[in-house]
Design a protein around this nucleic acid. Structure first.
Lengths: 516, 516
DNA sequence: CGGTACACGTGAGAC
DNA sequence: TGTCTCACGTGTACC
């Protein structure tokens, strides 16, 4: 089935037309899967049967056509557990929904208006959607029989074939045909229904709570889903039911050959009997196909698709006929979900790790432990250092440095000026005859900081008011790609005749002189 | 087999005597498993054949007896992958080792002196160890046949039974008996050896490296194993080989009934054919047994034990006879180990989490992600706060730098010297071609710091290796009434030809020259 | 009894 | 080629 996605436009259209005609469907839509970051289905192609001749202004068909076009524009995220997307996500090869069932599985109301009885076929590349008229004039089963006679030629013998039982709310596909001719379903000695998608009518009324945000949804998925249809519990339940219903119908029985003396290797054996035309799973599809062989290709596609089925759910059907219990299926599905959750957690965890880490689970775990302990020790170290710094700050500069003089310079901190000089009074706890003040110089430009500092200090040397330079601190940071040197000098000043603003201007001139 | 552990002392002794007599063994030892925190085997009981009459001072028997007593005192941790313990740990029901194989699997040297050809039988409660004389006068197989004729009555038919091939270094058990009478081994149509424990002679000479501490051993196991015999790679390989050898001998073939029309549920079906006398797994053992029925009980024990086997390794033998490939077995074992490793990682991870966390894997993962992001934000916050504090502290009080890096200079921090220069490498997080280093200069003396700084910076200007001076920090503090100027410059250095010690000496000379 | 959690063996892909 | 990782369905234990 995946081969259809690889066709050119002409071949694809021919294929779709063929398909629509074969199944008597109203429309066919090809949903192609966009992988990871998108994780959604987009319409690759699609035709609406009544309007294949492209008359957009016709009265009767325009509504359906417009609906179809709108529908084709929709983006369907596969994680929503809705249609389209459900068949792909759950690897359900054949899923038939009627209006009743669809009401619980559509992604939005537009779809509901558009949907009728629909048939979804999930495959590796995406989904194929077949819209059926509500009252099908044709029998799908007979159509398929006519289309693929090879699939209905079963070896003689094995007469203990139970009649396929039609099911609940779904249109029975096998009312007219003999049981040994069920389409796509080569039932074993299992009491089997047709391969249709079953939804029990006893579904919860709470299924409409699609806007409830599940707290379990992780960041990852939230990002992926622009239109967020989180999987609520009821949806999970519905999906479980759905999958369960599908899987309980053994549409994927491995082969018609059940000679019980065959040396089959295991319950999930991959050696298919040579009497069937099954190709192996992962058999590469033909790179291109001509439109003349579209019918043959379709046949092969169905074969491939059936084969996919077999591979995906072969574990369910033991080679020795047994009953696929409902609880077993429940178990299987919940186990699937559990694994899925674990894997998502792994992915989230991996995203937090340094990007160089390996991808496998063991490395994720060990890398996480490493990172975790490293972070813990970092936090501890930082905390200690912090405490140390705080105690120091409170003890050494006793009662925080009250900036007495608000910067005497009116110069706003203008990053465009080459040089800015500020002088800040420092409240000295000790003797008051010698003042402390901070001289803050900011030099903007490519020049080395060294020169600025040297000039400043040479200048300071000449000032007799300046007793000592208690400390120098400088650093360089980039501001708008231009280095900005910051220099802070703590000076001890004595004498009352110290002219602060003159000093400030002198410093500015010294540095700016250099900068010119 | 587990029933023996439930017997009273008298019955147990009778059982052991019966067993020893039946197998012609030199000694019998009953190893009982102590579960979780201990996780070891302790000798519940044991008799040494030659000295069953308790004469401790006899000359000939005293050595063996003392050895046996010492041996019985030993504590054998099942995680070591050694004997005893291996059979229990790996659920190996029948494991026969000769001296050659034992050398690689004993827990300590005392055992090596004591061991000869030994037969271990692992069961749910512990292990049963049968010590054989080196040259067995009796044929185990015939003994077993005599003891359990029921187990050797096989249905007629299925004549394509290949002769059991004896193996390499082990004493062949089936040289005299027709192949269809292999003990405890009801071989199918599989080319099978006897159910003995095989170790190929081509094992590495490095098997003696039992004291190497594997880094992969987690905290958990380290705690449990007081005497720690970590599993080295060679041990892993040996164990793999061993298990592989054991499992490849289909000693646990489910039944002699292989009617291919039976509706067995699955490959690991639990419905045993009613034609055999097998009791179900988990059938509760009879609460007590009289010593008069010890022989019957033994028989039933063997049956139970065989049944246990069937349950434990039934996956290996598909109901439809097929070849348990060696690669398959290897695969199985390595998969087991992979799972084990993952679980260990989970345990380690869980130990790092807050103790209130749930125990299951999903909670561990999500809790880890939470903790990780929380720690990350904590680190970020602390770092910012730290930076803020540091800038405040340096701008206001200019705290002296804590010399973190060990000084590369050999100069002891001598406060009497006039000038000291240290160079400390700064761990550069970014590119490695440009290094960062801190130049720490301490000048002791009355002179102004300004001159020192100026001289240093003038010097630095001439150095072409010094790209920039990222920061300058200086302060002055009093030490023994003498001012000590500390200057720290962070330099960016490029070029490989940078001679650190020469640079250091140059700086020292520059400053010291001034100081004179 | 239903639901969850986990270990197991197995097939398939990646390298 | 073998080796490793992973997902799967299943059996089983716990609540």
């Amino acid at each position: 089935m995946d081969t259809v996605f690889l066709l050119g436009e002409g071949d694809r259209a021919a294929f779709l037309r063929q398909m629509m005609h074969s199944f008597g469907s109203v429309y066919v839509c090809l949903w192609s899967y966009l992988p990871h970051p998108s994780n959604c289905l987009l319409a690759l192609d699609g035709i609406c049967g009544e309007l294949a001749d492209e008359r957009p202004s016709s009265s009767a068909g325009s509504l359906a056509r417009r609906l179809f076009d709108v529908y084709r524009e929709s983006v369907n995220y596969v994680d929503c557990g809705r249609v389209p997307g459900l068949a792909f996500k759950s690897n359900i090869p054949y899923m038939e929904l009627n209006l009743h069932d669809l009401q619980r599985l559509v992604s939005n109301q537009v779809q509901l208006q558009f949907y009728q009885t629909v048939l979804f076929m999930g495959c590796a590349t995406g989904e194929i959607e077949l819209g059926m008229s509500n009252d099908p004039h044709v029998d799908l089963q007979m159509q398929m029989k006519n289309l693929f006679p090879a699939d209905f030629s079963r070896p003689a013998g094995d007469p203990n074939q139970p009649p396929s039982s039609s099911s609940s709310s779904l249109r029975s596909l096998s009312v007219e045909s003999p049981p040994e001719y069920s389409p796509l379903v080569l039932s074993h000695n299992i009491p089997s229904t047709t391969s249709s998608f079953l939804l029990e009518p006893s579904n919860q009324a709470a299924a409409a709570t699609i806007t409830i945000t599940s707290p379990h949804h992780d960041h990852h998925r939230q990002i992926r889903n622009i239109v967020n249809f989180p999987r609520t519990e009821t949806e999970d339940a519905a999906m479980t039911k759905a999958i369960l219903a599908v899987l309980s119908s053994p549409s994927t029985t491995s082969s018609t050959n059940n000679n019980n003396n065959s040396q089959q290797t295991s319950h999930n054996s991959t050696n298919y009997p040579s009497t069937t035309a099954f190709t192996r799973y992962r058999t590469p599809p033909p790179p291109v196909a001509t439109s003349s062989s579209s019918r043959n290709m379709f046949k092969r596609s169905v074969l491939f698709f059936r084969n996919l089925n077999i591979r995906r759910s072969h574990e369910l059907l033991q080679v020795q006929g047994n009953r696929p219990n409902t609880t077993q299926l429940h178990h299987m599905i919940s186990e699937r979900r559990r694994r899925e959750k674990l894997n998502e957690s792994f992915l989230v965890l991996r995203s937090l790790l340094p990007p160089g880490t390996k991808r496998d689970k063991a490395s994720v775990l060990s890398g996480t432990t490493e990172l975790l302990s490293s972070l813990k020790s970092q936090v501890e170290e930082l905390r200690q250092r912090n405490q140390m710094l705080e105690s120091k700050i409170s003890s050494s500069t006793l009662s925080d440095q009250v900036v007495v003089g608000n910067s005497s310079s009116s110069s706003a901190v203008d990053h465009q000026t080459r040089v800015s000089v500020e002088i800040t009074q420092v409240q000295s706890p000790s003797t008051s005859d010698a003042r402390l003040l901070d001289l803050r110089v900011r030099v903007r430009g490519e020049r080395s900081m060294l020169d600025s500092v040297i000039r400043i200090m040479e200048f300071l040397k000449q000032q007799r008011n300046v007793i000592t330079v208690l400390s120098i601190e400088s650093n360089t940071r980039m501001f708008e790609s231009v280095p900005v040197h910051g220099i802070v000098l703590r000076l001890k000043i004595e004498g009352d005749e110290f002219d602060e603003s003159a000093f400030q201007e002198a410093v500015r001139r010294v540095v700016d002189d250099l900068a010119d």
